[in-house]
Amino acid sequence: MTETAPQSDGTFGDLVSRALGNRSFVIGLVITLVVVAMAAVSFFWTPFDVTRLVVADRMQPPSAEHWFGTDHFGRDVLSMIMIGSRNSIAVALVAVVIGMGIGVPLGCWAAARGGWVDEALMRFNDLVFAFPALLSAIMITAVFGPSAINAIIAIGIFNIPVFARVARAGALSIWPREYILAARAAGKNKARITVEHILPNIANLLLVQGTIQFALGILAEAALSYVGLGTQPPMPSWGRMLFDAQTLMMVSPWLALFPGCAILLTVLGLNLLGDGISDIFDPRARRRI
């Protein structure tokens, strides 16, 4: 993005004005909020009940009554997409929490401790990266049975080294700073310095990575559900809807159109949000690019 960043004075108000001036951030935030709102609303209201099968209404094209049409069981596609968003968000979010919860402490530990701990952890990271994540997720769900929970675990495991790497790199750049030296001179131990000084300073990096992994998690969940290894029917999920739509594409192409758009928009929104956040916190780094 080319807009020039306003003069930074480091206050919260300054941060907000920079955020509102950032196109990626605003568009990404709006899309993300719409998806989250859709998921929230689906808990107490959807246009139609998705557990009721109305065979008379099956495979209707989009209309005023059914905005996105109906599927082969007569279920309202819009209602299914709304409930599916809940599912996508839950899986991806918990996977991010697993990744952050384990990866960030490991990365901070490696940075603080250095030496063999650091080396061992980074080699372990290389190792996990050699497994294609989706392939391993497929194996995990194949062995332990397909379910949303196993999909979360499989995706979560592969978030761990990503966050460990980001946290370590961020922490390593903070440790040589003078205020850390001051904190050490004041007698704070490494754990306390990490919590009080390192973490707040790498929070933005973690936030950006969090949105990226969130987006990747949504894509992975959709792929797993599409091949039948993620969320199980009758719970609606975007990936599963696309699988069902595939055989019906000749007669009702809209069945494949809307769930796909939902995935695309959600992931696009999160990616823009991530780009925006990293712009806002580090305008110089981005302007060079």
């Binding site: 959709a222 696309l242 595939q246 594409m249 769930p259 990616n271």
Partner: peptide, 12 residues
């Protein structure tokens, strides 16, 4: 947009 596109949906 390409980055956000699920490849199996693009395939469909």
């Amino acid at each position: 947009v390409g980055v956000a596109m699920p490849n199996f949906w693009f395939a469909l």
